[in-house]
Amino acid sequence: MLEVNELRKVYNSGLIEVEALKGVSFRIDDGEMVAIMGPSGSGKSTMMHLLGCLDHPTSGSYLLDGKDVSGFDDNGLAEIRNKKIGFVFQQFNLLAKTSILHNVEVPLIYAGVGRKKRRKIATDVLTKVGLGHRLDHHPNEISGGQKQRVAVARALVNNPSLILADEPTGNLDSKTGDEIMELFHQLNDQGHTIVLVTHSDEIADHADRTIRLLDGELVKG
């Protein structure tokens, strides 16, 4: 379960101050699949970064599994990112110079899992997303849909309770997008909480409910 209260985020780049989030409150229960929607610049990515513990809010609180995240130091946050959260990005964000298998192993490395066990888990997860035959390929040797599958596998590999996806289908055609959404459904059925940002109503229809943002504020109703 996660809960945000009066969450604010102000970007301060030199002279200009941008209030990307203006006090947003909501809660998401375990096992939910929630879509975040809103026009460009409404603060969706900002919200995802805060939910993913990649950034600190300017004010307000964020409770993850009942614990206030602001109480953790950098190392504590790194551990949360590693164990409790899986992140899927629009731009895939794979490490270009290593194999797919190694990419999926990275979270396990930082979790301190031994080489043999790591290899086995990563292989299993990649097989689950349908890439068991591509383990030694490099990211530039596979298609966009396959890259996003690798990214999903990587997000899954430490078995986190929360999976965050910022426009996971934004760089894919609708057919491959549907395939990725199918994957998220399976994960949701297995009990993972899923929060995804999208521009598409079709994609949002997959979710249990939708949170709408406009100019950094929650749209009621």
């Binding site: 990649l54 950098d74 190392n75 551990e79 164990k83 964000n93 990275v106 930082y110």
Partner: peptide, 16 residues
């Protein structure tokens, strides 16, 4: 820089 960002998102600590 991006690689470092990815690693941090995946759980790398400063020390790592």
């Amino acid at each position: 820089t991006r690689e470092i960002g990815i690693r941090k998102a995946l759980g790398a600590k400063k020390k790592d």
